[in-house]
């Protein structure tokens, strides 16, 4: 049921990724201060944005789960969070590389996006032990949803707090992330963002299809096992 539309989506992601790649290497100019390394920006920032949106989307899907009681929404929420955590790891790694290359340190505390991302990442890592240490499937889905909603609301709140704190101690950051990118850079960035978003949705759908198929298989096996003794008798 999730495989519908997967193929065109996968194709679109592929095209967008190739385009973004080409734009990053051949179209976007090298940054005046940081040079070539700055281009990791086109991976890092879209990844961070998509991952944060994925976390919030997971929370919204969890609301739908609690309202409808339909376990499919819990599964969607789980897969969205799962994918976002994987992307989140990518965000932290690319962020560290970028920081190392342009400032000489593997970690900088005056980058509010990165710092609040670390906090959010640490919180979401607890999703797995919480989810998988509850045996009863209904309760597992319900508790996971409550976590997803709480954490989803926490994401923007935390961002505001960290941003305020950093702006207070390091006022220069505000002017730097003011967001006036030159035209070529902006276009490249937007295409990269679209590619990342498309990739996220594709992976999300793919994972859901796989999860759905294996659940279906398990169910059929059980049905078969239940029927066999009856057939013998």
């Amino acid at each position: 049921m999730y495989s519908k539309g997967l193929k065109p989506l996968a194709a679109a992601s592929a095209v967008l990724l190739v385009t973004a790649f080409a734009l990053v290497f051949f179209y976007a100019p090298n940054d005046a201060d940081q040079g070539f390394v700055q281009k990791i920006f086109y991976v890092h920032v879209p990844m961070a944005i998509v991952a944060l949106c994925g976390f919030v989307a997971g929370g919204i899907m969890a609301i739908r789960h609690l309202r409808s009681g339909d376990p499919a929404w819990d599964m969607r929420s789980y897969v969205a969070i799962h994918m976002s955590i994987i992307l989140g790891l990518g965000v932290l790694i690319t962020g560290a590389i970028w920081a190392r290359a342009s400032w000489g340190h593997w970690w900088v505390w005056d980058e509010p996006v990165l710092v609040s991302f670390l906090v959010v990442f640490l919180l979401y890592c607890v999703y797995y032990p919480l989810r998988f240490s509850i045996d009863d499937p209904e309760r597992q889905a319900r508790y996971s949803s409550v976590f997803a909603i709480t954490a989803g609301a926490f994401v923007p709140l935390n961002f505001v707090a960290v941003r305020l704190a950093e702006a207070y101690t390091h006022p220069r950051v505000l002017s730097q992330t003011g967001g006036s990118l030159p035209g070529e850079m902006r276009l490249t960035f937007l295409v990269s963002l679209a590619a990342m978003a498309c990739l996220f949705v594709t992976l999300w759908k793919l994972e859901l299809t796989a999860k759905h198929a294996s659940a279906e298989l398990k169910r059929l096996r059980r049905r078969l096992a239940e029927r066999q003794p009856a057939a013998v008798a």
């Binding site: 906090v119 959010v120 640490l122 919180l123 890592c125 607890v126 032990p129 919480l130 240490s133 509850i134 309760r139 508790y143 976590f147 709480t150 954490a151 926490f154 709140l157 935390n158 505001v160 707090a161 960290v162």
Partner: peptide, 21 residues
């Protein structure tokens, strides 16, 4: 955390990041 098997671990791990702001 009360329903999770490792609740003594889950509670602080959930609480502390949420308390960052």
């Amino acid at each position: 955390a009360a329903e999770s098997r490792a609740r003594e671990l889950t509670a602080p791990l959930l609480l502390l990041p949420l308390l960052v702001p």
